[in-house]
Amino acid sequence: MPSLKAVRLRIASVKSTQKITSAMKMVAAAKLRRSQDAVVAARPYAQTMADITAELARATDAEAHPLLDARGAGRRIALVVMTSDRGLCGGFNSNLCRMAQRHAEEKKRTGEIDEARYEVVGRKGRDYFRRRKLNMTRDLPSAAADTALARAKELAAAVTEEFLSCTVDAVLLVYNQFKSVGSQRPVIEPLLPIAAPTTATDGDGSEFLYEPGKDQILDYVLTLYIETQLHRALLESIASEFGARMTAMENATKNAKEMIDRLTLQYNRARQSSITKELMEIVGGAEALKG
């Protein structure tokens, strides 16, 4: 049994860890609320944008615009992986990176693709792919809600350029989708080429009139579509990060509390047994003197 002093020190140290984790939980909760509002507000815009783009893509031949060109289903793909700069958020980053890596390796094994490259947002993702010496061609720092749009534009320009110059044949988005405070789901979504939906929507399929011209509309809408999707994914990722951190810190605080309870019990037992031992010694000494 450890000494009384050792147990007491242990309790003090767990208590201060608990203070830190519960403070981090509060911070994550406060930031979560703000980023949750941002992602919820951004969804309708992104959804309408996606609907309009789908409509446009369906009414257009795939040859009409290079961004719609699905050349041979993509032999070389780029995965845009959105992680966070900071850790202490449970399996948020590692699950996502592992999923991206597994997806790429699976496709390579089945011969669907020849080469995969990773374009990483966030320091944690960068560290993951660098440590494994995987083909990481770009790494950017993670964004906050107010810098997400600028980062999305930067990324959009970069991946569009790579796609148009035929450096890659397809671009996939890998990010944590924000479901609720307690649940984030890592997802893989195709970004480029922009695919026309095969199912009919509520439109009657009639031809649109375009102003100024169809080509200008396509250029404008498709560019904006890519930026919007990246922006939304970044916001989802940011909200998910805080959600994941809040859950992780709540668990850590709970674990610390359990540990303190257990150590306190141990401390009390040790104290009681030392008192009992002392008493026995005194009683024993008195008995000996009597005899």
Binding site: I52, L56, G203, S206, E207, F208, L209, Y210, E211, P212, Q216, I217, Y220, V221
Partner: peptide, 19 residues
């Protein structure tokens, strides 16, 4: 405010897209 000038839309307008 369209890129090429203002335009109006009334119910029954044909399918249309503008910047």
């Amino acid at each position: 405010p369209g890129l090429l000038g203002e335009f109006g839309v009334l119910p029954g307008h044909i399918p249309f897209m503008s910047v």
